[in-house]
Computed example of a mutant assay.
Amino acid sequence: MMNKWEGIVLKSIPYGESNKIVTIYTREAGKMTAMARGAKKPASRLAAVTQSFTHGFFLLRTGRGMGTLEQGEPIDSMRHIREDLEATAYASFVVELIDRLTDDQSQSPNVFSLLYDALHAINEQYDPEAIALFVEWKMLPVAGVHPVLHQCANCRATDGEFAFSFKEIGFLCHRCFHIDPYLVRLTPTQLRLIRTFFTVPIQEVGSLKLKKATKQFMKKIVRTVYDEQVGIRLKSRQFLDQLERTPELLPKIEKPQEEGD
Results as ranks from 00 to 15, higher is better:
Glu83Val: 00
Met32Gly: 00
Asn3His: 13
Ile253Trp: 01
Cys155Ser: 07
Gly160Cys: 10
Ala91Tyr: 08
Leu186Gly: 05
Phe239Ile: 14
Thr158Lys: 14
Arg195Phe: 09
Gln71Arg: 08
Cys173Ser: 09
Phe198Gly: 08
Leu249Asn: 08
Gly160Val: 04
Phe57Met: 13
Ser207Gly: 11
Val9Ser: 00
Arg233Pro: 04
Gly38Asn: 13
Asn123Pro: 06
Ser92Asn: 05
Asn154Trp: 08
Tyr126Gly: 03
Ala29Pro: 01
Thr68Ala: 08
Leu101Lys: 04
Gly72Thr: 00
Met139Ile: 11
Ile98Ala: 04
Thr214Glu: 12
Ser44Tyr: 09
Lys40Asp: 11
Phe162Glu: 09
Glu244Met: 10
Arg245Gln: 15
Pro256Phe: 14
Ala121Phe: 09
Ile24Met: 07
Lys138Asn: 00
Asn110Pro: 04
Leu46Asp: 05
Pro141Glu: 04
Ala36Asn: 09
Thr33Leu: 04
Ile131Val: 15
Lys20Gln: 13
Leu133Pro: 00
Arg233His: 15
Ala213Ile: 06
Ile202Asn: 06
Tyr182Asn: 12
Ala153Trp: 00
Ser18Lys: 07
Ile169Ser: 02
Ala130Ser: 12
Arg175Met: 07
Ala157His: 08
Tyr90Arg: 03
Val95Lys: 00
Asn19Lys: 07
Thr102Ser: 11
Gln238Ile: 14
Ile221Ala: 03
Glu17Arg: 03
Ile81Leu: 13
Thr62Gln: 10
Asp104His: 05
Ile81Trp: 10
Ile131Cys: 03
Ile131Ala: 06
Met2Ile: 15
Met1Gln: 10
Leu234Cys: 13
Thr189Asn: 09
Ala89Val: 01
Val184Leu: 09
Ile253Asn: 02
Gly63Glu: 15
Ile232Pro: 05
Met1Leu: 12
Ala213Leu: 08
Leu60Met: 05
Gly7Leu: 10
Asp241Leu: 13
Ser106Trp: 09
Pro201Leu: 13
His150Val: 12
Val22His: 05
Lys209Met: 14
Leu140Asp: 04
Thr26Asn: 10
Asp84Val: 00
Ser106Arg: 11
Thr33Gln: 12
Leu119Gln: 05
Pro256Arg: 08
His55Asn: 07
Arg45Ser: 07
Asn3Ala: 14
Asp117Val: 03
Thr102Glu: 10
Arg233Ser: 15
Arg64Ala: 14
Arg195Val: 03
Phe57His: 10
Glu17Asp: 15
Ala118Met: 05
Gln190Val: 05
Ile169Arg: 02
Arg195Tyr: 04
Lys4Met: 13
His146Arg: 13
Leu59His: 03
Tyr182Lys: 07
Met78Cys: 12
Leu85Glu: 04
Glu96Pro: 06
Thr88Lys: 04
Cys155Glu: 10
Thr214Val: 11
Leu10Gly: 09
Leu119Thr: 01
Lys138Asp: 03
Lys220Asp: 11
Ile131Thr: 02
Tyr90Cys: 14
Glu136His: 00
Met35Gly: 01
His150Tyr: 09
Ser92Phe: 01
Arg223Val: 06
Ile24Leu: 12
Leu240Cys: 03
Asn110Phe: 11
Arg237Glu: 07
Pro201Thr: 10
Lys209Val: 01
Leu59Phe: 00
Thr88Ile: 10
